[in-house]
Design a protein around this nucleic acid. Structure first.
Length: 807
DNA sequence: CGGATCGAC
DNA sequence: CTATGTCGATCCG
C-alpha cells in the first residue's frame, strides 16, 4: 500500500481531495447530535460474579476460564499480566497463586437478565452485546423524565449492602462516593411513596413512622434529570440489584458511547456532550485502535501509512479514499469525524450456526470422521432447537501448526439433521484428507457450520414447490432426502424408482454402453459432491438425480453435465470442468499457486534485517535474538517511556498522566512472518498493545517482584530485566502469536535439541516436514490496486519464513 | 458461492 | 500437557 501510495499522482490526489471533501461537507451537514446513546459495560463481569458469590476469592487474584483459555480476570490478577484471552497455564506461570474458576454461563446469564430488566426500563429497545454490555438510546426517556416528580426518581438503598463485611466489591468505595455525591446534591424530601423501586431493600411496614422516616432519609437518593444523572441511576440500580459495578459512556452515537464507557472504567462513567466541538476534541488524539471495529490488523495497516490517531486519519482522507475500498474509507471518514450510528438496530435473524472443538492432535482419518460426525450431531441438535435448515455446510480445520482452513459446500436442499449435515461435511473432510495423502491431516481443531438459512420467501417457494411436486406424484425422489435414511443413501445411491427418464438418464445409459475405466473410490465421492449440486433438488427440472446416478454407474471421466469426454485423467481437472459446466462458463485452467518469489523476497529481507543484529553464530543467541526482537530493552528508551503502563505494575496515575499515555501509546507487535514485518521500523517494535487491564488499574499500587530471575513462561528464556513491567511486555510480545505461535509445536523441540546438542547445523531445520499446506498470506483490507501489475505475495509459508529466519 | 480474514464478546 | 467458541461482515476471485 505504501508503494501504491507513492504512485498516486498529485492530479489524482487533488481530485480525490475534492470529492472526499464534498462528502465531508454533506456528512457534516447531516451530523446528528440529537440522540443520547448510552453504553453500559459491566466491570470484569464473570470474575466479578464469581467473587461476589464466593467471598474467599475476594482478595485473591482470580481468572475465569480454564487452563487452556481464560475469559476474564479480576484486577488483582491483571496486575500480574493475567488477562482475557490468555491461556490459563501461562497465566499460572505469570501468577502462581492465581485461582482459576471454571465458567458458569448459566449464572452469568441469570445476572445478565437482572441487569437487562433494569436497562429495559430506560429503553425497551436496548441492544445487548454479549452478556455484559448493552447500548441504550435514552433520548425519548430523557424527554419524558424532565417532567417527573422527584419521588419517581428516588431510590432507597441499604447502606449495609455496601459496607457489609467482606461483601463489598473492590470498587465499593467509589460507588459509595457516588451515592454520597448523589445524596448531597439531592433534596432528600420524604414522601410516602407507593411506587418504590424494586431494589428498595427496606421493609417499611414494621417501623414506626418516625423511625421509618429517618431510616429512609438516610438511605434514599434522588437522581436528577440529566443524562449523567440517569446513567448514575442505572449504575446505582445495577449495583443495588446485583452487587456488581458497571461503567458507562454517554454520547451522541454508539461509536462514541462505547469508547466513553472505556474512559473511566472500572465503575465510572464519561459523557461527550452533544456538541460538535466536544466530539471533535474527544476524537482528536484518539488512537485509532480504540475505535470499535478497528482491530490489530487494521491498526497496523494504517500505522504503516503513518496514521495513529483519528486526526491523522482525517488528514489523510484523500489518499485513503484511493487506497481502500469504498466501505472501508467511508467508515474511516466517519470515524475521523466522530460520526456513528444514532439508532440501535435490533439484530436480525441468525445467519449461521456452528460448533467447533479444539483437542489434542488427531491424525487418523477414522478418528477425524468420528469427530466430524459428533460435531454434526451437536450442530443438528442446536439447529433443531431453533427449527433451522441451511443450505451451506462449512467444515473448518486447524492443523497442529495453527493454520486454519475452511471448506464449504452448498446443497440445493436445506439440511438440518445429523445425517444430512454429516453427508456433506464428510465429503469435505474426505477431500482434505485426500489432498495431503499419503500424509495424515494433523488436526487440533475441527468445526462444522451451517448457513444459508431459508428466508420467508424461500420457505413459501419451498412449500409451494413441494405441494406441486407431490401433486405430480413424484414423491419418491423427495423421500430420498428425508431423515431416517442413511446419509449414504442421500447422496450416493440412485433413487429406487425413476418414474420418468430424463434427458440425462438417456445420455447416461448411452454412455454406459461404452464401458470405460471405472472411477477410483474417491473419485466417486468427489463426483457426488458435484452431483448433489445439480441433482438433489427435487424441484430441478431435469428430473431425478443425475449426479446420484452417475456416482454409482458412470465409469469414465466424462462430464455429467455436458457429456464431453475429458482428456485429462486428473480428477481435479474433471471436477473443475464440471464446476464450470454447471456454472455455464468456459473451463478455465486454474494455475496452481506456487510459493511466490515474493514470499521468499520477504523472508530474504527479514533475514538480512536480522543478520545485522546477530553476528554470533551460536544458536542460543539466535534464539534470544528472536525472542527479543520485540523486547523493549532492545529499542530506544523513548519508545519505552510511553509504554510503562503495560500490565500496570505501576502506582495510580493522575488523570492527566493517564490521558497522556493513552494518546501516545499505540499498539504494534512485530510480526516476523508477515509481509510488512520487515518494514516496521525497529524503534516501534517495543510498543505493545494497551489492553483493558491497563485502563482498569487506577486503584492499585505496585507489587513486589518475588523472583530474582524472570523466565518467560512462553519462550522459556531467562530475561535480562528484573523490571516486571518490561518483563510483562516481553511476555505480551511472546504471547502475541506472531513469533511463538508457529514455534510452539515440534519446532520448539527441534530447537531445544539443537541448543543442547549445540553441534548440528541449524540448516537442518529446513528439513521440517513439508506435509503442511502453505497458508495463503494474502492481505486484503480493501486494497484497490492502482496498477494491476502488483501481484503481491500470494502465498507466504510462515513456517518456511521462520526456518529461513533461523538459517 | 467459497474461502480467507477481521473483529467483537 | 495445556493457545476458545461463536457469530457477523467484508473482500476477492
Amino acid at each position: 500500500m505504501m508503494q501504491l501510495k507513492e504512485k498516486i499522482t498529485s492530479q489524482q490526489l487533488l481530485k480525490a481531495q475534492l470529492q472526499v471533501d464534498k462528502l465531508v461537507m454533506e456528512l457534516e451537514q447531516s451530523r446528528d447530535l440529537s440522540c443520547t446513546i448510552v453504553h453500559i459495560d459491566m466491570d470484569a463481569f464473570y470474575a466479578a460474579v464469581e467473587m461476589r458469590d464466593n467471598p474467599e476469592l475476594k482478595e485473591k487474584p482470580i481468572a475465569v476460564g480454564s487452563m487452556s483459555m481464560l475469559s476474564t480476570s479480576n484486577y488483582h490478577a491483571r496486575r500480574f499480566g493475567v488477562r482475557a484471552a490468555m491461556p490459563g497455564f501461562i497465566a499460572k506461570k505469570l501468577c502462581p497463586h492465581l485461582t482459576i474458576v471454571p465458567l458458569n454461563f448459566e449464572k452469568y446469564g441469570q445476572v445478565s437478565k437482572e441487569v437487562r430488566k433494569i436497562l429495559a426500563q430506560y429503553d425497551p429497545d436496548f441492544m445487548p452485546v454479549g452478556l455484559d454490555e448493552a447500548y441504550l438510546n435514552i433520548t425519548d426517556y430523557l424527554e419524558e423524565r424532565q417532567n417527573w416528580p422527584e419521588d419517581k426518581r428516588k431510590y432507597f438503598y441499604k447502606t449495609d449492602n455496601i459496607t457489609e463485611n467482606g461483601k463489598q466489591d473492590l470498587n465499593a468505595p467509589d460507588e459509595l462516593k457516588l451515592n454520597e455525591d448523589a445524596l448531597s446534591s439531592s433534596l432528600m424530601l420524604f414522601e410516602d411513596n407507593t411506587s418504590l423501586a424494586e431494589e428498595q431493600p427496606i421493609t417499611t411496614t414494621h417501623l414506626h413512622a418516625e423511625e421509618q422516616r429517618d431510616q429512609q432519609l438516610l438511605n434514599s437518593v434522588v437522581f436528577g434529570t440529566s443524562a449523567e444523572e440517569v446513567v448514575k441511576e442505572i449504575r446505582f440500580r445495577i449495583e443495588q440489584k446485583t452487587r456488581l459495578t458497571a461503567s458507562a459512556g454517554i454520547a451522541p452515537n454508539t461509536m462514541l458511547a462505547k469508547m466513553c464507557s472505556d474512559q473511566n472504567k472500572p465503575n465510572g462513567q464519561f459523557r461527550i456532550p452533544p456538541d460538535r466541538q466536544a466530539v471533535m476534541d474527544f476524537v482528536k488524539d484518539l488512537p485509532i485502535r480504540k475505535v470499535p471495529g478497528i482491530g490489530k490488523v487494521t491498526e497496523k495497516l494504517l500505522k504503516a501509512l503513518g496514521i495513529l490517531t483519528c486526526s491523522e486519519l482525517y488528514q489523510q482522507r484523500a489518499p485513503i479514499s484511493l487506497l481502500f475500498s469504498e466501505t472501508s474509507w467511508r467508515n474511516f471518514l466517519d470515524i475521523s469525524l466522530g460520526l456513528g450510528s444514532t439508532h440501535l438496530e435490533k439484530d436480525g435473524e441468525r445467519k449461521s450456526m456452528s460448533t467447533e472443538r479444539t483437542f489434542g492432535e488427531i491424525n487418523t482419518a477414522e478418528d477425524q470422521y468420528d469427530l466430524c460426525q459428533e460435531l454434526c450431531k451437536d450442530l443438528a441438535q442446536d439447529l433443531q432447537k431453533e427449527g433451522l435448515k441451511g443450505k451451506t455446510v462449512t467444515l473448518k480445520l486447524k492443523n497442529v501448526n495453527f493454520e486454519v482452513k475452511t471448506r464449504a459446500f452448498t446443497v440445493l436442499c436445506p439440511v438440518s439433521t445429523e445425517e444430512e449435515i454429516f453427508a456433506v461435511a464428510k465429503e469435505l473432510l474426505r477431500t482434505e484428507i485426500d489432498s495431503v495423502a499419503p500424509h495424515p491431516l494433523r488436526l487440533r481443531l475441527m468445526g462444522v457450520r451451517v448457513s444459508g438459512f431459508l428466508n420467508e420467501e424461500d420457505k413459501k417457494y419451498q412449500q409451494r414447490s413441494i405441494t406441486n411436486f407431490l401433486k405430480q406424484g413424484r414423491g419418491t425422489t423427495v423421500l430420498r432426502l428425508q431423515p431416517g435414511k442413511s446419509n449414504e443413501d442421500h447422496f450416493t445411491k440412485p433413487p429406487e424408482t425413476s418414474p420418468r427418464e430424463s434427458f440425462f438418464d438417456k445420455k447416461r445409459a448411452a454412455r454406459q454402453n461404452t464401458n470405460q475405466e471405472p472411477f477410483i473410490n474417491e473419485a466417486v465421492d468427489k463426483q457426488n459432491l458435484y452431483g448433489m449440486k445439480s441433482s438433489v433438488n427435487p424441484m430441478a427440472e431435469t428430473g431425478p438425480a443425475i449426479g446420484s446416478k452417475n456416482s454409482n454407474e458412470v465409469k469414465s471421466l466424462t462430464c455429467p453435465v455436458c457429456f464431453e469426454e475429458q482428456r485429462s485423467s486428473s480428477l481435479e481437472a474433471l471436477n473443475r470442468h464440471i464446476d464450470e459446466c454447471l456454472n455455464k462458463t468456459l473451463v478455465k485452467e486454474k494455475t496452481v499457486t506456487s510459493k511466490s518469489a515474493d514470499s521468499r523476497e520477504n523472508t530474504h529481507n527479514l533475514s538480512l534485517y536480522i543478520k545485522h543484529k546477530t553476528t554470533d553464530t551460536d544458536t542460543k543467541n539466535k534464539m534470544n535474538t528472536l525472542m527479543d526482537v520485540g523486547h523493549p530493552s532492545n529499542v530506544s528508551d523513548n519508545s519505552i517511556s510511553n509504554s510503562t503502563e503495560a500490565f500496570a505494575i505501576v502506582p495510580s496515575k493522575s488523570r492527566a498522566e493517564k490521558e497522556h499515555s493513552l494518546s501516545s501509546d499505540t499498539s504494534s507487535y512485530l510480526y516476523l512472518d508477515q509481509n510488512v514485518s520487515s518494514k516496521i521500523p525497529l524503534e516501534n517494535a517495543g510498543h505493545y498493545e494497551k489492553s483493558e487491564c491497563v485502563q482498569e488499574t487506577k486503584s492499585y499500587s505496585s507489587i513486589a517482584i518475588q523472583d530474582d530471575i524472570l523466565v518467560c513462561p512462553i519462550c522459556n528464556l531467562e530475561q535480562k530485566t528484573t523490571d516486571l513491567a518490561v518483563f510483562n511486555r516481553h511476555v505480551d510480545v511472546c504471547l502475541n502469536k506472531g513469533i511463538i505461535q508457529k514455534l510452539t509445536e515440534e519446532r520448539v523441540c527441534l530447537l531445544k535439541n539443537h541448543i543442547t546438542e549445540n553441534s548440528k547445523r541449524i540448516g537442518s531445520l529446513d528439513k521440517a516436514p513439508q506435509s503442511m499446506n502453505p497458508t495463503t498470506g494474502t492481505k486484503r483490507s480493501g486494497l484497490i490496486p492502482l496498477q494491476s501489475t502488483s501481484k503481491k505475495a500470494k502465498t507466504c509459508n510462515s513456517s518456511h519464513t521462520i526456518e529461513t529466519f533461523f538459517k
